[in-house]
């Protein structure tokens, strides 16, 4: 009956995972998180600001009873740095969940596949439930699954680019090849991009900028929530095949006009 998202030993109601970055204010973020219906929200691990302790804390605006925190390793460019960030995130949050992100380049923010695989292997051994961000390369996705990633998360397009899913074929191959949950992470610009991912059979979508950067983040959060639900339902319902020619919806018999010869 219930159609939940299962990642490792964890289970979530919503298939939309949202980020907490780039919001103008914390209250706006809180309102957008609420509208998104997400159960899992990503956070980053950063140094405490020692000189200015007056700033409000992100965690004051996230109800820990409602949301599961998914600490990321964003900003790390080597397996060692990412492993260190993951361990620190576990210590702050008391959770084995980590969104592993090892980047290769500052301009593209594309993942470094070699370092990503190394870090996945180590973190899996250390008992983490690893949600691994990767490119849309089907072979790499398979390698990450074999290394024990609990979820493999190919980018639809580069982080923050809002281009949607650039290579549907690769995502389809990944979906066909992997048994673990596949979640499209990054590059999603608007609700239809989310729906496309879900209609293809992805288990979920993770996004941040698509909501936080919208003119009205709260409205966009709701749009994304509905798109995930609509896309999931369409996937479950089984779409009609695409055909070249038309097929009438009304009966061909009893038409009052004379038959065309």
């Amino acid at each position: 009956m219930s159609d939940t998202l299962k990642i490792g030993k964890h289970e979530f109601k919503s298939r939309l995972i949202v980020g907490t970055g780039k919001y103008a204010t914390f209250p706006l973020m809180a309102e957008a998180l609420d509208a998104s219906g997400a159960d899992v929200v990503t956070v980053a691990v950063r140094r405490v600001n020692l000189t200015d302790r007056s700033k409000e804390s992100l965690l004051d605006f996230i109800d820990r009873k409602r949301y599961t925190l998914l600490p990321n390793t964003a900003g790390c460019y080597s397996a060692d740095d990412a492993i260190r960030a993951a361990r620190l995130g576990r210590e702050v949050g008391f959770s084995d969940l980590v969104k592993l992100e090892v980047l290769g380049d500052e301009q593209t923010l594309l993942p470094d596949p070699v370092e990503t695989l190394k870090a996945t292997e180590v973190l899996v051994k250390e008992g983490f439930t690893v949600w691994t961000y990767t490119s849309d390369d089907p072979i790499m996705a398979k390698r990450l699954e074999s290394a024990g990633a609990a979820a493999v998360m190919p980018a639809g397009a580069p982080i923050g680019s809002g281009q949607g899913i650039l290579n549907r074929n690769n995502i389809l191959i990944i979906l066909e090849t992997l048994k673990c949950p596949v979640i499209v992470d990054a590059g999603v610009g608007t609700a239809s991009d989310v729906a496309v991912a879900m209609e293809m059979g992805c288990e979920g979508v993770l996004l941040n900028t698509g909501i936080a950067g919208a003119e009205d983040p709260v409205k966009m959060a709701r749009a994304m929530k509905l798109a995930v639900e609509a896309g999931r339902l369409a996937w479950q319902a089984g779409r009609i095949p695409k055909k070249l020619y038309a097929k009438a919806s009304s009966p061909a018999e009893g038409v009052i006009a004379p038959k065309r010869l």
Partner: peptide
């Protein structure tokens, strides 16, 4: 010593 916390992120 390093002291870290959670901040907003994607």
């Amino acid at each position: 010593i390093e002291v870290v916390t959670f901040v907003g992120g994607g």
